[in-house]
Design a protein around this nucleic acid. Sequence first.
DNA 1: GATACGTGGAC
DNA 2: TGTCCAAGTAT
Length: 358
Amino acid sequence: MTSYSNRLETFPIGEFCRKILKWYEKNKRPLPWRENKDPYRIWVSEIMLQQTKVDTVKPYFENFMNKFPTPEVLAEAEEEQVMKAWEGLGYYSRARNLQSAVKEVVHHYGGEIPKSPEDFASLKGVGPYTKGAVMSIAYDLEEPAVDGNVMRVLARVLLIGDDIGKQRTRKQVEQDVRALMVGTSPADFNQALMELGALVCTPKNPDCTACPVNNTCRAYQRGMTRELPVKAKKKKQQRQTMAAAVIENKNGEILVEQRPDKGLLAGMWQFPMVEASPALLHEAMSNYLKETHHVDVVLEATEQRFDHVFSHLIWDIHVFRTTAHAHTLTLNGKWLTKTKAKQLAFSVSHQKIWEQQL
DNA sequence: GATACGTGGAC
DNA sequence: TGTCCAAGTAT
């Protein structure tokens, strides 16, 4: 493997840049956020695209831009409407941080997305990648935008054997990109690297024979594309057994509760839910309903269960239901009509809970 | 620097 | 079913 200090010394930078830029010009996908250089549009797309596939993002992006077409509109929108537009995309702090950052742009930068990388990077939810992506794509500033694609492409091209999960590796690759992009269009160069990673230099079965830069690729020349990039294996997710309850009162209303404003699914509404050992689910939910929502009734187990898989844990959700007397005394919940409860209860798992208890 | 933070799709 | 992933950030 090549070391950080010397890996660009004998690398044909000019040839690599010329070829990848030419390839990008010819092969770039027409994407909704490539229609113009509106920094706000590009910013929104970059946030949505974090850890999320292009095909997943497309419909969300169109809908989001229709509802919140400018920083001013997003800044003034109800947070609940913003979250609703994000529902299903995951990583919900992205939406809250984006709205918070846009408010700062409107109130402190006159509604103009800062052209200073340092100013832009100070906004909530804007990390090293998003800073480089928006500054380069929207303003053509010479900033690297190193995402998973770029890490993979350069790990192979430059034969980098370091774990790409490490922050230090990413910082070194950022320096590599800074050196490579001199004299190019940063907007096109960054996107060319990412597009090549997405379409040709894929994680599995890269299409090396079709690659425009295979003659400069050190991994390809050595038959090592399959060993790169190096990435530490993920730990297995922890399993949690959960009880969830759909409770209808005599008025036909459904009980929903709000999660804490920090942590997993922060601030989101859900049907009452508790963690417990598998044998004690029924008892745990009964006690929880009594203590938290002052609902003291006989619970019915539905025999319905399903997994909700997160990146770091798995909920084994068991669905209960019951009918309660009408009242409103709850600690962190409220009774809503079925329609409103179903709308408010967030996250994919709660749509499933609703369907399964019917 | 390791861990928390969602989801759906590919194989 | 399991595993890995997809244009990362905050703490």
